[in-house]
């Protein structure tokens, strides 16, 4: 197993108390696997992604462990984590358009970054050229400033930079949310290509767009209010979801060829609970059409079929 996350709990410190953004999440990502992480805003998917590479100042590691290739990641210790960043765990951020220092030539910035990890620029220069070629960027971009590149070029540049040292785990955090639909597909395919060529061993692809995830992910994990709702092979999640939340999420997607003037697109009524003081029991209970007495207790994630985990007592 490339990545093994057990019972990970992460809170945000706020003036009103701890926001329990991630509450005992357990899952695994295998070698060569692309895990699609889906959920609405506030479900904890971005918090999970950040926890695995760099927590921001307000986040606190409360409990649980993260193991990558058999070694435990010191996720709560910013200094100790530096050894693993970039080489073992890397990130393609949501803000790829502004991720490059505007006053530094891109090649120089890459050299500075490599230097931080004791890697000589010369030793990877050739590989860098090959990868730029792969994403159809001319080698001249290295001598340019970020402002001289288009948005799509910057996006591809960041993808190449983030994966340059062949990290074991790549976290792609909402990388497609700022792109138009045709570019979204291209970016997703490029990322899958990186995995196929072995640039990255495994990947967590965070998005709120289940249909896009379905195109590249092997497994999809759906989160709700800081907890795992359902995790299954991508096809199973889309075609035969078991958790009522996943079902509602899939149902709220538009289908090709359907006139929504005649049939209204289903949404999910209500909104997720506050994570400042989350209610006991199943967190989807208030919005769930199937809820009954037993939902007052937290349902454990049960393996209903091989590789298919569902946290619902009705499933």
């Amino acid at each position: 197993m490339a990545l093994r996350v057990s019972d990970l709990t992460v809170h945000y410190r706020t003036l009103r108390g701890a926001v329990k953004a991630l509450d005992g999440v357990t899952f695994e990502v295998g070698d060569g696997e692309i895990l699609g992480l889906a959920g609405e805003s506030g479900s904890g998917k971005s918090t999970l992604g950040k926890s695995l590479i760099r927590m921001d100042g307000r986040m606190r590691h409360v409990g649980g462990t993260v193991e990558l290739d058999g070694k435990e990641l010191p996720i709560g210790d910013d200094g100790a984590m530096n050894r693993f960043r970039y080489k073992e765990v890397s990130l393609i951020p949501q803000y790829a358009m502004s991720a490059l220092n505007p006053t530094r030539k891109i090649g120089k910035m890459v050299a500075d970054l490599l230097d931080s990890h004791g890697v000589r620029y010369k030793s990877v220069e050739e590989e860098l050229g090959r990868r730029l070629d792969l994403v159809e960027l001319p080698a001249e971009v290295l001598g340019k400033y970020p402002i001289e590149l288009s948005g799509g070029m910057k996006q591809r540049m960041v993808m190449v930079i983030s994966t340059l040292l062949d990290p074991s785990l790549l976290i792609a955090d909402e990388v497609t949310s700022a792109l138009d639909v045709s570019t979204q597909k291209a970016v997703a395919t490029t990322l899958a290509g990186f995995r196929n060529r072995g640039f990255v061993k495994s990947m967590i692809f965070i998005t709120h767009d289940i249909s896009l995830t379905h195109q590249i992910a092997d497994t999809i994990m759906v989160m709700y209010a800081g907890k795992l709702a359902e995790k299954a092979p991508a096809d199973t999640v889309v075609r035969a979801p078991r958790h009522p939340y996943t079902k509602a999420l899939i149902n709220s997607l538009p289908e090709v060829g359907v006139q929504y003037a005649e049939r209204k697109l289903a949404g999910i009524p209500g909104s997720p609970p506050s994570l400042l003081n989350p209610p006991a029991g199943c967190r989807f209970r208030d919005r769930c059409p199937l809820a009954f007495d037993k939902c007052g207790e937290q349902p454990p994630a049960v393996e209903v079929a091989p590789g298919h985990l569902v946290a619902c007592c009705k499933a």
């Binding site: 951020p93 502004s98 991720a99 490059l100 220092n101 990890h117």
Partner: peptide
């Protein structure tokens, strides 16, 4: 707090 700083820090830059 700009994005480029966050990116570099996430990639473990000094």
């Amino acid at each position: 707090e700009a994005d480029y700083s966050n990116y570099l820090l996430a990639l473990g830059a000094r």
